[in-house]
Structure formats: C-alpha cells, structure tokens
C-alpha cells in the first residue's frame, strides 16, 4: 500500500525531508515506525513519540490503509 509521510522537528532534520510517499507492507503504525527507524537511523524510539493518522492522534497498533497520511510526533515544546 501507499502511505504519505510528513516529518516535523528532529525527525524532519534526521530524514532530510518534509514529506514523502512510500510503498510499504507494514500492517500498523508501530511496524511502520520500526522500519523507518531502521532505514533512516532516527534517534527517538516509539516510546518518545506519538502518532497521528489522517490528522488525528491514534494508537500505535492502528492498522494502516492505502493512502493514509501518517505523522510521527516528537516530544512537543509549545507554549
């Protein structure tokens, strides 16, 4: 399936991209992050992140569907 990824903050810096579209067979958000972390060497483990699919926060075991927009969120620092 095709997944659209958007990166922010330290993940954007480490990936060197703001967004990309990839083909994957990873069934859920956790598996997808594990694959991406292995491929790109992201410093943060999933425990330090939250995940959003299609502009809503969701659980790590959320199944992915073709065309989903996935964002992994580093620890926030607003305010």
């Amino acid at each position: 399936m095709t997944i659209h990824l958007e990166y922010f903050a330290s993940l954007r810096e480490q990936r060197g991209l703001a967004n990309e579209t990839i083909a994957t067979t990873d069934p859920d958000a956790r598996a997808l992050y594990t694959s991406l972390r292995e491929r790109h060497g992201f410093s943060l483990s999933a425990e330090h992140l939250r995940v959003a699919v299609n502009d809503d926060f969701c659980d790590w075991d959320r199944p992915l569907s073709d065309g989903d927009r996935v964002v992994f969120l580093p620890p926030v620092a607003g305010g």
Binding site: S10, E13, R50, L73, P74, V76, A77, G78, G79
Partner: peptide
C-alpha cells in the same frame, strides 16, 4: 504538536524536548 528549535549565542541549535 508545536516544536521549538533554539539557537544559542555560541551558534549551536537544537530541537527542545520537553
């Protein structure tokens, strides 16, 4: 989901993790 990148007077910069 808002992030902050601080730049210091010595030129270093980093994304601040709360």
């Amino acid at each position: 989901p808002i992030w902050k990148r601080e730049t210091y007077v010595d030129g270093r910069a980093e994304w601040v993790a709360c």
